[in-house]
Amino acid sequence: MKQNTSGTPVIEIRDLSLSYGDSDIVRHASLSIMPGEIVCIAGESGCGKSTLLKAIHGMDAVNVTGGEIYFNGSRLTDMSRKERRLLMGTGIGLIPQNPQGSFNPLRTFEKQMRETMSSHGLAFDPDEMISLMDSMGLEDGRKLLKSRPYELSGGMNQRVAIVFSLLLKPRVLLCDEITSALDVTNGKLVIDEVESYAARSGAALLMVTHHLGIADRIADTVAVMNFGEIVEYGSTSQVLYHPQDSYTRMLLEKIPRVRREKW
């Protein structure tokens, strides 16, 4: 959790509005993320948080109807498709919510990773991949490298997708509900692993989650979204412990907490 307070933000969005087809999904959102900073966007289904991530990652299906997105000071909308494509993965990494959709189900993980690395001009080191898998509770990595996505469970695929994203060493890693397919024990391993990646590499994390406990555990900054708007944005302690917005308060109140006997 180190945070530079000066310098160029790795990601900055200014007054961004987004739509899918005819419907407005995000309205006038502004955020800025410094290198090494961990930002969580919290909100419920349909609030626009995933759409915001997709726009930053540069997916075509999302229309930017207003505002700007900057990566290290350069405007994303000024870049050519090729430039943006090269940026994906190594500049801006994305761990999608549904990783099965991003793998070829019939090819081994090793082949897919090797190919991804070489398309970015990077060397593939199987041992690095195996040790990362091990730290996320995926045992027997050597065998896993030879397996295909369809042979593994949803939770295992999710963790392999996280390993893929980390191996590309992005400057900013966008995480879309990365623990939703996981059991609590594996969820914790994964959260700890992405946090430690940010700490050792100085990369920024932008995490989308409906889980405020994750935000409290690792985030420096929290943005709460409701119906396409950022309703509250500030330091984690400010937003989670002194919430100003009524929607943030509702979220904090309604989440069932583990009830324990009083000491």
């Binding site: 969820g187 405020l212 406990g213 409290d216 555990r217 989670l240 412990y241 904090l252 583990v258």
Partner: peptide, 12 residues
């Protein structure tokens, strides 16, 4: 182990 893995606001 299950209880330790639960992440909540304010636990730490």
């Amino acid at each position: 182990e299950l209880l330790d893995a639960v992440m909540e606001v304010g636990e730490e």
